[in-house]
Design a protein around this nucleic acid. Structure first.
Lengths: 354, 354
DNA sequence: TTGTAAGCGTTATCAT
DNA sequence: ATGATAACGCTTACAA
């Protein structure tokens, strides 16, 4: 086992002090060019690498930022991470990622583990509305909350106009003549999902239509089954509004399994926009979240805080956009009576009204 | 700004030595129950968190494992990361992720940054066949290479039977009566892609058919355009074999843009298996990589090494499986002359023969 | 511009 | 079982 080479070894080999070596690598103090060259040569020769643990311990300045998300198998979250990693790298940071697995307990545990590294900052997508207690204690690194935010006064947040997004989806359906719509939610306990559902409901109601809700959970496979069960026991709506990427997948998956024609038999407005949604004969009309903007807002906000900005908390809200493709059928005459559909009631994984 | 609370503060508050506090949290030495309770109480009261940087510096034992991938927007890589994060967390590790962006230079840079944390281990999916020089120097943490491996004697590797996978895809096509197949590769310079292409070629040839190749790159959008250009200048094959998830998307996207019927006009065998591939009327027949097994092999291997195992290098190879859905049409009589298709020649993003 | 030396918060060694 | 203390590798006053 080769012995670890430290700044001292480099200093000795280059015939300078450790302080000089440090300055060569950190660039915090100017160093004579000749010396610097000698130092680098020695470092290369010895295979020296800085030890971040030591430098963090001494300086208190960290180059890692922690990112905590509720589900690493959800493309929405991984796409956010992707963007953040990109931005962070360009600014000289590393990111360490944690997965709370949609569990409040696990979230707390992961948070502790991440915090133990004294990260320069934190970007967290909470798994619930509850902010982990750890983050309320003083002396924590700056943090920005994304997406599933229920409390806006604790720290910077970046979210989307959820009600607006839901309304936009539903309004498109109404405009196309749909009057019975089913809102496929993942979990109505989650603030953003609930708001999207409510936004959709309001738009449909205003258009004279009726709305039902179903909760499908976060697994597309299980969601498809839950949806199938729902359809077996309810009058069929003419269209579905999905409230996130997973429910979009679930709805599509259900239709595929029943060989239902899209948009012939049922229309769909999906949520989120991924490549596969247009890589099909009938492209999916969707509400697109501005993932890049969300990530870059988050990063900007965090950078500000990391550089010591103590300004008031800011709550950034982004707008979604409607991307019209082929998954919504136009209906000329109102189809059936709206009255045929009653008030929202339990179904699938358990349902709730908005 | 609240002062950082250290092990010393806790020790003082609990009336014990720092060593005892350390032992309470690390569990390395037994501690009297009463004392331990007092320590924990004090720690809670003061809001103490261990400082991993300090503990790493002193002990040399790290709980982070670094993962480096070539492209964080590729679902294959994120799915690998997802699995690894899961496994790692269960074993008490954190993971820090780096993205080499398919650039050798950036890969080296990211690697240095990751290595500076003296991670307990490394899992890297190289962006090319070249192993970054840094990893050849002695004294580095254990490392296992995944996927894009060209050198098997440097460290543990886990890969799939690429030629077999390609052959399996092509054989299915041959069995279904296809004789002109196009292999849609991302980049034939990459060993696994090349091997898949060669495997496919061999199977088609053996079946008496002819093969062409096209390179589409790693962006599905651009890939679709490149494929469109290719089709505009070449006689159409009856089927496409995609060599990875991105080219699968590119091919499907091309077909969608031209409103081509799948599998009526062109059949496809895709690569990798994601939820969206079956959430469509005509499910995609695919070659599925065993992502979970790949990740868990990698983690197992790494754990062994991290615990000091110095056994011979192991090269684990996993098999893929064919999942038959609806994207391949059966052809009874050989369609057209095989002779109509010449030898492979440049096209799209530049092509090469296997 | 460069060198000297103290100290960051832990863990490990050695006493007790 | 517990305590005192040195040391991990670096950064940063401060001195030269």
């Amino acid at each position: 086992m080769a012995k670890k080479v430290s700044i001292k070894d480099v200093a000795k080999a280059a015939g300078v002090s450790t302080a000089t070596v440090s300055n060569v690598f950190s660039g915090k103090k100017p160093v004579n060019d000749d010396l610097a060259a000698k130092v680098r040569a020695a470092a290369d020769r010895l295979g020296y690498q800085v030890n971040k643990a030591a430098s963090l311990l001494r300086s208190g300045k960290n180059s890692v930022v922690s990112v905590l998300v509720p589900d690493l198998s959800d493309p929405f979250f991984t796409s956010i991470i992707t963007e953040i990693e990109h931005l962070a790298t360009d600014d000289g940071y590393e990111i360490i990622v944690g997965n709370s697995n949609d569990s409040v307990d696990r979230e707390a545990g992961r948070l502790d583990a991440l915090l133990a590294w004294q990260p320069a900052g934190l970007i967290v997508i909470p798994c619930s509305g509850k902010v982990p207690g750890r983050l309320r204690t003083p002396g924590q690194p700056p943090c920005v909350f994304l997406d599933r935010v229920a409390e806006f006064s604790l720290a910077d947040t970046v979210t989307i106009d959820n009600a607006g997004a839901g309304a936009m989806a539903a309004q498109h359906l109404v405009d196309m003549g749909h009057r019975q719509v089913l809102v496929a939610a993942s979990d109505l306990e989650l603030a953003p999902i609930r708001q999207r559902a409510q936004g959709a409901e309001a738009a449909v109601r205003k258009g004279g239509g009726s709305v039902q809700f179903v909760e499908l959970g976060s697994d597309p496979q299980l969601g498809a089954e839950a949806l199938a069960a729902w359809f077996d026991t309810h009058p069929s709506p003419s269209a579905i509004v999905a409230t996130n990427d997973m429910t979009t997948l679930a709805a599509l998956s259900y239709m595929a399994s029943r060989k239902l024609d899209l948009p012939g038999q049922i229309s769909i407005v999906g949520f989120d926009d991924y490549a596969w949604m247009q890589a099909r004969r009938t492209g999916i009309t969707v509400i697109k979240q501005p993932v890049e903007e969300i990530a870059s807002s988050a990063w900007d906000l965090l950078k500000e805080r990391m550089s010591g900005d103590a300004a008031d908390i800011v709550n950034r809200v982004h707008d979604c956009s409607l991307i019209i493709r082929d998954s919504v059928r136009g209906i000329s005459a109102p189809a059936g009576e709206a009255a045929a559909l009653g008030a929202p009631r339990p179904a699938g994984g358990g349902a709730a009204a908005g």
